[in-house]
């Protein structure tokens, strides 16, 4: 078969046909991989949350002032912990992204470093250093007094020879705590409704925020539209 002439119509037609075929083929692949990709993403998030929160049954994702937070509940709709995903730009090599989990009393339950560009062998140790059993253990810490490295007058042991990375980590913790306080605060700030029985939650359709306060009561904030009235 002879080679096609490079006439305008030939060129336009060829490119058109090739792009259409490519687009259709890609559409198919996208369609078939869409679900596995979503599953992978969810699995990854859940694995991260599992590391930083007490055992939970399901979680509700929410954005608080642009910061992704995840509230975890057990099977009885009791809040067991809140995880906050924070980014700090104070790192030695750039942004540091940390997922910090708090228990219901606001103490750190766990953390995991999601992304960092710290120096390999120094700042990169932050993934283990501050865990339980690490030298700079922060697990169980109450952050109502902000975390600070010892050099700055705080009580966190900095990573040897990586004070800046350690400072960035403390900054991330403090930011996470600020967001955590915010989520708890936002529950009470808007119109609230006290529901006596926690099982009632299952029937509420447009619940935007649920959090525990007091002993047996759960505060439920309804969206502006209201939806159906509750008994």
């Amino acid at each position: 078969m002879a080679k096609k002439q490079s006439s305008l119509i030939n060129m336009v037609l060829t490119l058109f046909v090739i792009t259409v075929v490519a687009a259709v083929a890609l559409g198919f692949v996208y369609y078939f991989t869409q679900e596995p990709i979503a599953q992978v993403k969810e699995k990854k998030l859940n694995e991260g949350l599992m590391k930083v929160l007490p055992a939970f049954d399901h979680q509700v994702a929410e954005e608080v002032e642009g910061v992704p937070t995840y509230k975890a509940f057990d099977a009885n709709e009791q809040l067991v912990g809140t995880a906050v995903e924070v980014v700090t730009d104070k790192g030695f090599g750039g942004d540091v992204k940390v997922l910090v989990g708090f228990d219901t009393e606001g103490k750190i339950f766990g953390y995991t470093v999601l992304e960092h560009k710290e120096t390999a062998g120094l700042g990169s140790k932050m993934g283990d250093w501050f865990q339980e059993g690490g030298k700079g253990n922060v697990i169980g810490k109450d952050l109502s007094t902000p975390a600070k490295v010892k050099k700055d007058g705080g009580d966190v042991d900095a990573i040897t020879a990586a004070t800046i990375s350690s400072r960035a980590f403390c900054d991330a913790l403090n930011k996470a705590y600020a967001t955590y306080v915010n989520t708890v605060g936002s529950c009470v700030s808007t119109d609230t409704l006290i529901v006596k029985d926690s099982k009632c939650c299952d029937t509420l359709t447009n619940v935007s925020t649920v959090c525990k306060s007091g002993e047996n009561s759960i505060e439920v904030t309804l969206k502006e539209e209201g939806g159906q009235d509750n008994e």
Binding site: T119, G121, L122, A161
Partner: peptide, 8 residues
């Protein structure tokens, strides 16, 4: 290569 040994 050896940041911690080289800065102690």
């Amino acid at each position: 290569s050896f940041p911690s040994q080289m800065t102690t």
